[in-house]
């Protein structure tokens, strides 16, 4: 393989390292920031990095969906909630007292070490042949054939979620 930094593979590798750094830094900011707005900003940085990882995994459609749904919709909705319900600035935000952080570090570290060990030590068997290329056309046709039931079910779930969100947030609006 060509290991020159200025070849196409080398530049793609540099871009990939940047995406990895964005993902890791965004996740760390999201869980460690003092203020909630900065947490949401870190979350959107992390999701942008993850969308780039999806692009490297041969799935540009899922990468675009990640940007549209997570960065464009979920993060904006969370920011609206922060604007409606953030505690006042003088109160302590975010962090819990020492014990919660300690348990968090222990549990998170154990989970990370366990999962990383399992995934690097296991022997993954690669499929002999691929039956299609995973393009957007094949994605759409299998959504309409093999997975049409799941597709319908998730639309029902989204409808119920929208109605449920309205029902939950509606009472009390006229009092204020």
């Amino acid at each position: 393989m060509d290991q020159n930094l200025y070849s196409a593979e080398g530049l793609a590798g540099v871009v990939f390292l940047g995406l990895l750094a964005a993902t890791v830094a965004g996740a760390l900011i999201a869980v460690n920031a003092k203020r909630l707005v900065r947490s949401v900003a870190g979350l959107s940085l992390c999701f942008t990095g993850v969308a780039g990882l999806y692009y490297f995994l041969n799935s540009p459609f899922v990468a675009l969906m990640e940007l549209l749904i997570y960065v464009g919709a979920v993060c904006v909705a969370i920011i609206f909630a922060v604007m409606l319900a953030e505690p006042r600035a003088e109160e302590k935000v975010g962090k819990s007292s020492g014990l919660g952080s300690l348990f968090g570090v222990i549990a998170g570290g154990l989970v990370f070490i366990g999962l990383a060990t399992v995934s690097t030590k296991s022997h993954w068997s690669i499929a002999k042949t691929k039956i299609n290329t995973g393009s957007v056309t094949e994605l759409g046709s299998s959504l309409m054939t093999s997975y049409s039931m799941v597709f319908e079910l998730i639309s029902v779930v989204l409808l119920v979620a929208i109605i449920g969100a309205l029902v939950l947030a509606l009472p009390g609006r006229d009092k204020e």
Binding site: L36, I78, S96
Partner: peptide
């Protein structure tokens, strides 16, 4: 796989460490 494990562990850590409900929601998304 290691990046996925890292995001998962960050989410667990944030769920245990955050006090506000919105912070917990952000960790759940991770």
């Amino acid at each position: 796989l290691i990046i996925g494990a890292f995001l998962f562990a960050c989410g667990i850590y944030g769920l245990l460490q955050h006090r506000s409900l919105i912070g917990m929601l952000i960790s759940g998304e991770l």
